[in-house]
Design a protein around this nucleic acid. Structure first.
Lengths: 192, 192
DNA sequence: AAGGACACTTAATCTAGATTAAGAAAGGAG
DNA sequence: CTCCTTTCTTAATCTAGATTAAGTGTCCTT
């Protein structure tokens, strides 16, 4: 069974026909690492669901410093929520970090699906709710924890990502420079 | 017309009967400043909609430092999303900063309303989407802007809050100490 | 197999913002 | 009006993490 149908089934149950209708509104694409799926300044037309591989969304500050907003690996959704909802140019990039198979759901098809399968409105509401909760927690963590504590939490929460993703990507996600991250990491290893 | 109905009408249109059903599932309460509506460790049973006054949600780190997650004034919703959704104990407090009239919508009634008025599923989805977008922007701002830049953005975004809310609350929202905030503010005044 | 581009490390120096402390101003309860 | 608590200010000192710089490792690409 398709991963994306399993993902939906976790929150709402679709009939066989509804599943087929849903799939008919999506496209599967294959991308090589380093492919940019969305550029800053462009309008985000799709939600992306990762079947395999790893993507990330990030912005660039003053044309220099990158900041990772999210990683997405197997079974995760990713997109530029702001641009997708407003259909205005966003400031996020979406990039492939590891060769990926991705399901694309266009904004128009998503809205057609809301009309034809109202249960999907519930599904995406729940998805957005969970995303908001995770975001709020990360925000509070950034306000109240040290870089070291944030890193420990990250390791517990995304144990698989640490092996697969370049260290500077994790540093960027945590909000520290790669140099400081390297120093911090070796300090933590020496301790424990 | 009730403020909360106007709020809903911004995104979905309800019939007269639906409006009355909705209101019948809510309660209005009046609270004095400093009232705690939700305690850390408690389970959040309601969404709160502010008719007048100001509320805030915050957590406390190591029993010492407070961090403001959100302010809510006239026309805004507030709650502990994590606890409300999971019905597990949360770690947020919700407190009244300025005497307030508040509409309470219990979790159970919210679910009843989803069943009886499916359009409300759409309404709360949109609300959550907007909240997520705002949160992501704030997260990226915290990663990439200085305290001064964040303060300027805050002033533009919430001009009314600055006069009404204690300075240390704004400092806490921005993620700096009240002492540093005071120093920064007077430095900015001297400049411009 | 060699070269070049990144990714990571280490170390010295620097700074935004924290901490500590103490006084001034402002608000609220009696 | 007065006392008491809380908020705000100012200033000295301190630190987590940034910046700069140089060296090492690694993995594509040809």
């Amino acid at each position: 069974m398709e991963l994306i149908l399993k993902n939906i089934a976790q929150h709402v149950s679709l009939t066989r026909q509804e599943q087929e209708l849903f799939l008919s509104k999506t496209e599967i694409h294959h991308y090589k690492a380093k492919t940019i799926l969305l550029n800053s300044g462009a309008i985000c037309k799709h939600s992306y669901f990762v079947n395999s591989g790893i993507l990330r969304s990030f912005n660039i500050n003053d044309n220099i410093v990158e900041h990772v907003l999210t990683f997405a690996c197997e079974g995760w959704w990713i997109g530029d929520m702001y641009s997708l909802l407003s259909q205005k140019p966003g400031n996020l990039f979406i990039e492939v970090l590891e060769d990926a198979e991705v399901v694309l759901l266009s904004k128009e098809n998503q809205e057609i699906l809301y009309r034809e399968i109202p249960k999907l409105e519930r599904f995406f509401r729940i998805l957005t709710e969970n995303s908001l909760v995770a975001n709020q927690e990360r925000l509070m963590d950034n306000l109240s924890l040290t870089a070291e504590e944030r890193f420990e939490k990250f390791c517990k929460k995304y144990p698989t990502l640490i092996q697969k993703v370049a260290q500077k990507q994790i540093a960027s996600y945590l909000g520290v420079t790669p140099e400081f991250f390297s120093k911090m990491k070796s300090k933590m290893l020496r301790k424990q």
